[in-house]
Design a binder for these strands. Structure first.
Length: 425
RNA sequence: GCCCCGAUAGUGUAGCGGUCCAUCAUACGGGCCUGUCGAGCCCGUGACAUGGGUUCAAAUCCCGUUCGGGGCGCCA
């Protein structure tokens, strides 16, 4: 279709054709104005006198229209560049009233917004969130490719739990009961045995936890890596590189989106600080919080710990009891592990570790976690025929987006979120 | 799984036993206005989730149901 993007109008002159949504319609006695929006911005369409074939007052808000007209130089418009219309065509009418008016002064509840997500996403701020999320992912991908990672796809329909204990969604698979995968963990490790050396996967992860919070979803995007001939230190360095690349890409490609959201993010050039699990306990004690060594931190604990850091930091050396069976124990102290979480203030963004590569040790760990090795036969087999030492991590893409943009609810950066109650749209 | 809380016009809200055939804003319809831009001014349309109970009287109090929100636990 013949089309001029609204962002290009400022540098053009003469006749253009703009395609977009009629965001506002203001009719005065002898003149009318439309604010028309497309993905690149908004402009003002001015209508003087009659235009053949179109009844301006009958145009409803959010209808899709085509406007041909002359660019007005030295415009007084405060709503972007101005076009004096010569032809207007309604390409598709919008019903009225709108179930949610994204451009009204009143803000709708997130519930109403999600019920009418297609309309909600017409807001510039919401578009900005998803452009940024896209850039963050691009930055991570670019970095991992530069480090010779192979992007892979592993099954989401699986026969057994990845880590045991966690709640999985059961689905009917012909005449069998199977599950939606909570993590690509077992498969990416198997690929290390296959000699792929470095793999990553971006895909959905499903958790059947009945949680009801602003930082959890039942389906989220997991960015997972696994690297052979590596330990937790290597994995942490890779994570730091990936996160910094994500931020740098966003800063380079999305300055306007960041400004629409009023978000200022510093360049993360310095090293992410580190604190061990035990040091966290000491820190909590100083604040008068007694914390047991085999209990995970509560949100309140993490607020206290996080208040000691500006942004990103690692919590390392987690106790074995709090980590999955595949986590490598420390060489000198088997009670703790070669593991880490990447935190941003009070929120966990990534969890990672060096993994167990010795099948004998793996069997012992199954026993310690009361898991049945038979359920993991296909996984264990890959360890019996030459499995390199390896390490990796899993990062929640929505969590990363949320914390960097300071969003209050993870649903804000999920196009169609799946939570405990929401299955539509 | 546990614990709190909520449901009033398209949207967002006020009201929390009679003064409510329900407030205000916004949207919508109509009118006025020679350039507006959160346009303005006037008029109008439009709602108490659902079932039961208490009471002379229920949007308001009690119980159930449905739908939803938040926190904890678990985790990305």
């Amino acid at each position: 279709m013949e089309r001029t993007l609204i962002s290009e109008i400022g540098s053009l002159e003469g006749i253009v054709t703009v395609l977009g949504w009629a965001q506002e319609i203001r009719i005065l006695k002898n003149i009318a104005f439309l604010i028309v929006r497309d993905v690149t911005g908004q402009c003002q369409v001015t209508i003087k006198g009659k235009i053949d074939g179109v009844d301006i007052p009958s145009i409803t808000r959010e209808s899709v229209i085509q406007v041909k007209g002359k660019i007005v130089k030295n415009s007084q418009s405060k709503s972007g560049p101005e076009i004096l219309a010569t032809e207007i065509t309604v390409l598709n009418n919008s019903l009225s009233p709108l179930p949610l008016a994204p451009f009204d002064p009143v803000n709708a509840d997130i519930e109403t917004r999600l019920n009418n997500r297609f309309l909600d996403l017409r807001k510039r701020e919401h578009l900005a969130i998803f452009r940024i999320k896209s850039s963050l992912m691009f930055g991570i991908r670019e970095f991992l490719h530069s480090q010779h990672f192979i992007e892979v796809q592993t099954p989401k329909i699986v026969s057994s739990a990845t880590e045991g204990g966690a709640d999985l969604f059961q689905v009917q698979y012909f005449d069998q009961k199977v599950y939606l995968n909570q993590s690509p963990q077992l498969y990416k490790e198997i690929l290390i045995s296959s000699g792929f050396d470095r793999v990553f996967e971006v895909g959905p992860a499903f958790r059947a936890e009945k949680h009801n919070t602003v930082i959890h979803l039942n389906e989220f995007t997991s960015v997972d890596i696994e690297m052979g001939f590596s330990n937790h230190e290597d994995a942490m360095a890779m994570l730091e590189g990936a996160v910094k690349s994500a931020i740098a890409t966003m800063q380079k490609d999305n300055p306007q989106d960041l400004s629409v959201l009023n978000v200022k993010i510093e360049k993360y050039e310095r090293q992410f600080p580190r604190i061990t699990f035990n040091e966290c306990l000491t820190l909590l004690e100083k604040e008068g919080v007694m914390h047991s060594a085999n209990v995970d931190f509560s949100p309140e604990d993490l607020r206290i710990i996080g208040s000691n850091f500006d942004g990103f930091y690692f919590i390392t050396k987690w106790p074995s009891s709090l980590r999955p069976f595949y986590t490598m124990p420390d060489e000198t102290d088997p009670g703790i592990t070669n593991s880490f979480d990447l935190q941003f203030k009070d929120k966990e963004v990534t969890s990672g570790a060096q993994r167990v590569h010795d099948p004998e040790l793996l069997r012992k760990r199954f026993a310690a976690k009361e898991l049945n090795p038979v359920d993991f036969d296909f996984y264990l087999k890959a360890f019996e025929f030459g499995m390199p030492p390896h390490a990796g991590w899993g990062l929640g893409l929505e969590r990363l987006t949320m914390i960097l943009l300071g969003l209050k609810n993870i649903r804000e950066c999920t196009i169609f979120p799946r939570d405990r109650t929401r299955l539509k749209p």
